[in-house]
Computed example of a mutant assay.
Amino acid sequence: MKLKLLTNIQEAYDELRYKTSWPSKKQLVKSAIIVMIASVIIALIIFIMDQIVDRLMHFIYSL
């Protein structure tokens, strides 16, 4: 059982170390910036939708 576990750990390490292509620092920073910008845009869209629904509900209940 221990031998199988150690073999699995070694295989996982080898795959991560030698077979996986990791992004460069430049690619990683560029991707992170894109994700942050997309997150802000989505948050703004949700905020605007929430404000519209809130005002609509206030209008409906004030009648």
Rank of each mutant, 00 (worst) to 15 (best):
23 P>W: 01
25 K>W: 06
2 K>H: 10
39 S>I: 03
52 I>M: 04
20 T>E: 09
47 F>E: 07
16 L>D: 04
55 R>E: 10
1 M>L: 06
58 H>D: 13
27 Q>S: 13
9 I>P: 02
13 Y>Q: 11
61 Y>G: 10
22 W>I: 03
41 I>D: 07
23 P>K: 01
30 K>E: 12
57 M>F: 09
48 I>C: 05
46 I>Q: 02
15 E>Y: 02
28 L>Q: 11
13 Y>K: 11
28 L>T: 14
30 K>Q: 13
53 V>D: 10
13 Y>T: 05
29 V>E: 15
34 I>M: 09
29 V>I: 14
30 K>L: 13
11 E>W: 03
18 Y>E: 09
6 L>Q: 11
25 K>M: 12
28 L>H: 11
35 V>E: 11
8 N>M: 12
40 V>M: 03
2 K>G: 14
58 H>A: 12
3 L>Y: 03
29 V>F: 06
10 Q>M: 12
44 L>N: 03
52 I>A: 02
62 S>L: 01
32 A>H: 10
1 M>A: 13
30 K>T: 14
40 V>P: 02
53 V>C: 04
57 M>N: 14
12 A>G: 07
60 I>S: 09
47 F>M: 11
60 I>E: 12
17 R>N: 05
30 K>Y: 08
31 S>K: 15
21 S>R: 11
49 M>T: 07
10 Q>T: 08
63 L>N: 07
41 I>H: 01
18 Y>R: 13
59 F>A: 06
53 V>M: 06
18 Y>I: 03
7 T>I: 05
53 V>N: 05
34 I>S: 15
36 M>D: 09
19 K>P: 00
36 M>P: 00
21 S>Q: 15
43 A>P: 01
60 I>T: 06
49 M>S: 15
22 W>P: 00
55 R>K: 14
8 N>P: 00
1 M>T: 08
58 H>I: 09
14 D>I: 03
11 E>G: 04
42 I>H: 03
50 D>P: 05
46 I>V: 07
33 I>Y: 05
5 L>Y: 04
53 V>G: 00
15 E>T: 07
4 K>F: 11
59 F>N: 14
10 Q>E: 10
63 L>P: 00
46 I>N: 05
50 D>K: 11
3 L>R: 10
30 K>F: 12
8 N>E: 13
54 D>Q: 12
5 L>P: 04
7 T>M: 08
63 L>T: 11
2 K>L: 15
40 V>N: 01
26 K>T: 09
17 R>T: 02
25 K>P: 06
32 A>D: 08
61 Y>C: 11
24 S>M: 02
39 S>W: 01
39 S>T: 08
12 A>S: 12
45 I>T: 02
54 D>L: 07
38 A>D: 07
32 A>F: 05
43 A>Y: 00
63 L>D: 09
20 T>D: 08
34 I>G: 06
9 I>C: 04
3 L>K: 14
54 D>C: 02
25 K>G: 08
17 R>V: 01
7 T>S: 13
55 R>F: 10
46 I>H: 03
6 L>T: 04
28 L>S: 15
29 V>T: 14
38 A>N: 02
28 L>P: 00
49 M>A: 15
